[in-house]
Design a protein around this nucleic acid. Sequence first.
DNA 1: TACTGACATGCACTTAGCTTATCGCTTTAA
DNA 2: TTAAAGCGATAAGCTAAGTGCATGTCAGTA
Lengths: 314, 314
Amino acid sequence: MSVSLRQLEYFVAVVDEGSFTAAAVRLHVSQPGLSHQIQTLERQLGGPLLERLPRGVRLTPAGRTALPHARASLAHAERATSAALRASGVDAGELHVGTLYSISIGVLPPALRTWRRTYPDVQVRLVEFRHTNDLIAAMEAGQADLAVGPTPPGWDGPVREIGAEEFVLAAAPGTQLPGTQLPGTRAAVNLAALADHDWVHFTPPSGLADVLDSACADAGFTPRAAVRTEQAPSALNLAHAGLGVTLLPGNVVPPAFDGVLRRPDPPVQRMLSAYTRVRPDPITAAFVEAICHHTMATPTHLLSLLEPSRDPSR
Amino acid sequence: MSVSLRQLEYFVAVVDEGSFTAAAVRLHVSQPGLSHQIQTLERQLGGPLLERLPRGVRLTPAGRTALPHARASLAHAERATSAALRASGVDAGELHVGTLYSISIGVLPPALRTWRRTYPDVQVRLVEFRHTNDLIAAMEAGQADLAVGPTPPGWDGPVREIGAEEFVLAAAPGTQLPGTQLPGTRAAVNLAALADHDWVHFTPPSGLADVLDSACADAGFTPRAAVRTEQAPSALNLAHAGLGVTLLPGNVVPPAFDGVLRRPDPPVQRMLSAYTRVRPDPITAAFVEAICHHTMATPTHLLSLLEPSRDPSR
DNA sequence: TACTGACATGCACTTAGCTTATCGCTTTAA
DNA sequence: TTAAAGCGATAAGCTAAGTGCATGTCAGTA
């Protein structure tokens, strides 16, 4: 079987959306990738299915006759999935996932994209908290099926570590951090050298506050908080505005960030886990698998910001 | 769509072959590779589809409910391929026509002769069923491109009526049916006069059983079944052997039949149609036209049997 | 008790799928 | 008339998925 459901899905989406570009947007893939898949499908089916117009596409006779079968094949594959889930006694309703704002922004989107493709019938509702303690309390109160966050100490239900979240130092453009004056380098900054700096800190009981305090304590000083905030994006904005340096999850740094960005030395990470109160049902377990399949690699744009010498076009 | 046709193909092959190893051999892949794909599919579908036994496998409830959809998805993907190839003027192998045994024998051969002359490169494969319900179910599952059979009620795809199939009464040689004693005549037999006869009936849910029950109900009695069978040729044999009178499609009566043969009064017919799940591609549409061009005239040999005085050669 | 058959696991390699950058063509707007 | 915009295709490179091989594990059979 050389034809794949993915190809049929792309084909149907192009017909429904009226163009390759619109279909790519809808399916969250790049336009060249979709174009390539359609061309492979057309080679397998003996000729063009779509006539390319300057604006949009038109079905060829071959495409017109294949289209209903493509739809039917996709529909039956979805029904196979739904039927199996129901037969397993799984309510394919909503999955409630408790997490932190920073994780919503940085860690979960790739897993959610995969999830929607695999389980289109299962809605995921994110229950977001600012503080790790709030997340833990909500999980203890049964407010979510699954939590994704820092590994809770002493949790007595199932826990699955899913990777490490990298923290970075951020400051205003032009800030001269210690050890960073050499041109053309983006060396890590020795944390101990920042003992006299002002800090954009976090409001306890935020887990981010704990991370910052712990890292600085390990480096032998207590950070002097010029300002405190609850949210990582706000901290980034405040740092960018010059109120101090901050230490926050790299995931929340947008690609267009033009302030100073450095890794701390020693590196700062926190382990993230997916955890539940009880043994997870198959749907929840599947979500955990989806998260685990997306390695916690540092996002590409963050690498570009941290190490611009690796990216000649910038 | 993370479920793939390849996974569904492996799953269906395991069920059909009865073991992972045999399925791997059939599909020319390694057994660990197939095993891995099945496990991936099971993770996506929320649990095991197959119960592993020391010798072979058994479907789980989830697997049992997923299986028909998996088959249908694969079948439609193949139909999409064939339809596109045919529309492109590419020899696309075979046209699959679902039908009933009685129609295979009686209705289709003339159309097939014409067909072969017109499309010598397109093979027709008949997918034959004993019961109308089996034919309808197979069409819903995408097992054939086209169906030729009794007009299915409530069918939501394209339907083309192609004519009426005539039913006749048959009995053992020498049987004195009511109203048939006058020499040299082959008058129709009043159905109501057969109320006290034994009948060779058909096994439900056969469509032939429905036809017989309906005709007799209209005549005001319930046929007393001395024996039931599933197949029209068997019914003809049993009637010829003296177990009772039967009512069956005239098409299945061979030229050399030497038992009693009569038309019922009132006449009994059923409408036949050609129908598809989706708008037919040009090749399938051409086949439908070929069928329609052959009117449902009663075969010449049957006319000879029913009305021998019209045939001087006897 | 040893052997056989069948599925699962681990590892490494190959292939497929995807993104980014960019080109080429047509249409539209200035 | 010219420049800009929109759209699909090409090329290159990276990542993920699929596969084969070697081997382990377990249950049934001789």
